[in-house]
Simulated assay, not measured.
Amino acid sequence: MPLPKKAAIIITSYNGPLYPDGMNTGAFLSEVYDPFKAYTDAGFEVDIVSETGKFGWDEHSLSPAFAPQEMIEASKNPENAFAKALANIKKASATTASDYGLVNVAGGHGTVFDFVGKAPGDAALAGKVYDNGGLVVAVCHGPCLLPDVVDKDGNHIVKGKQVTGFPDSGEIVMGLVETLDKGNLAYTERVLKAAGANYLEAAPPFDSKVVVDGRLVTGANPASATPAAETAIKLFGEL
């Protein structure tokens, strides 16, 4: 039976302080919008999902450096398909895994607060889609969720796999090491290595990098969001 041509984009529910300038973190706009556009342009239906059914944007991700005006407008225009999906965000535990052939886990530093051991609904959805023969895609800080994603036999899908994700070197460049350490927050690179993954670093840290291992696709940073989605679309067509 063919997989449903429908994707779930999983985003963080956390929206609160992180940055030294006082701005909040949360879901990173381009890492949600870019895959949404890639999938819908390829004919997928797309739902946006979070652990609690709520979300907020990383305020840095709304700056012109990361979000062109059309992206901002798409997130706010109630007639736009992207804004409609955001307005109808689903709680992970209320979804049905068999509805989806693909899960795309987006990043933003909000994930370091709620993806590591605190998002069982998100992890269960990704694991069940994977069990059903679907794809799991995770980008930037989104791979923080992967160590909690297991298959029906209890195997961690990331163990022994080649993956990427936001590197420690990127946290250094962003000046967030002290904040992460003080808050005992997750580093994407470290949680992947601790889970037994073969981590491949993007160097420089903000250059696009996509790694494929079977039905697991990972991207290293915001620049990797569209390439990771495009890679997943191609792989989906080969399943």
Rank of each mutant, 00 (worst) to 15 (best):
Gly53Asp: 01
Asp131Lys: 00
Asn184Lys: 15
Asn15Lys: 13
Ile9Met: 00
Gly26Arg: 06
Gly183Ile: 03
Thr179Asp: 13
Gly110Pro: 08
Ala225Gln: 15
Gly16His: 09
Val136His: 14
Asn24His: 14
Asn184Gly: 15
Pro204Lys: 05
Met174Gln: 11
Gly133Asp: 13
Gly183Met: 15
Val163Arg: 03
Tyr130Gln: 00
Gly56Pro: 01
Glu70Phe: 06
Glu73Thr: 15
Pro78Phe: 01
Ala27Trp: 02
Trp57Cys: 06
Leu185Thr: 14
Leu3Ser: 08
Ser208Val: 10
Asp34Tyr: 10
Thr188Ser: 01
Glu178Ala: 14
Tyr39Val: 06
Lys209Tyr: 03
Gly121Glu: 01
Ala74Gly: 04
Glu70Ala: 04
Lys37Tyr: 07
Glu73Gln: 15
Ala85Arg: 13
Ala27Gln: 01
Cys140Gln: 08
Phe206Val: 03
Ala65Asp: 15
Asp21Ala: 05
Thr188Asp: 02
Trp57Pro: 03
Gly219Thr: 12
Lys182Asn: 02
Thr188Glu: 01
Ala197Ser: 07
Cys144Thr: 13
Asn104Pro: 09
Asp213Thr: 12
Tyr199Gln: 04
Ala97Ser: 11
Val212Ala: 02
Pro78Gly: 01
Pro227Ser: 11
Asn77Asp: 08
Ala126Ser: 13
Ala119Trp: 05
Lys128Ser: 11
Tyr199Trp: 11
Asn88Pro: 00
Ser30Asn: 07
Ile10Gly: 06
Leu146Trp: 02
Asp151Ser: 09
Glu45His: 03
Thr40Ile: 02
Ala85Asp: 01
Leu239Ser: 03
Lys5Ser: 12
Cys140Phe: 13
Tyr187Ala: 03
Tyr100Phe: 05
Gly134Ser: 00
Leu145Met: 04
Asn24Trp: 12
Leu62Glu: 11
Gly43Ile: 05
Ala232Gln: 00
Leu235Arg: 05
Thr95Gly: 10
Pro227Leu: 02
Gly154Cys: 14
Lys182Met: 07
Ser75Trp: 12
Ala194Cys: 01
Asn24Arg: 08
Thr96Cys: 10
Gln69Met: 15
Ser61Tyr: 06
Asn221Tyr: 07
Pro20Cys: 09
Ile10Thr: 08
Asp151Arg: 14
Ser50Ile: 04
Thr95His: 15
Leu180Lys: 12
Leu29Met: 07
Lys152Phe: 05
Asp181Glu: 04
Asn104Asp: 13
Gly175Arg: 14
Lys76Ala: 15
Thr231His: 01
Ala225Phe: 15
Ala119Pro: 04
Phe113Arg: 11
Thr52Asn: 02
Val136Gln: 11
Ile9Pro: 05
Leu235Val: 13
Pro222Gln: 08
Val103Tyr: 03
Leu145Arg: 13
Leu180Met: 06
Leu135Lys: 06
Val129Thr: 10
Leu216Asp: 03
Ala38Val: 06
Gly154Leu: 08
Gly56Lys: 05
Gly101Phe: 09
Leu145Asp: 12
Tyr39Ser: 04
Gly22Cys: 04
Lys118Trp: 01
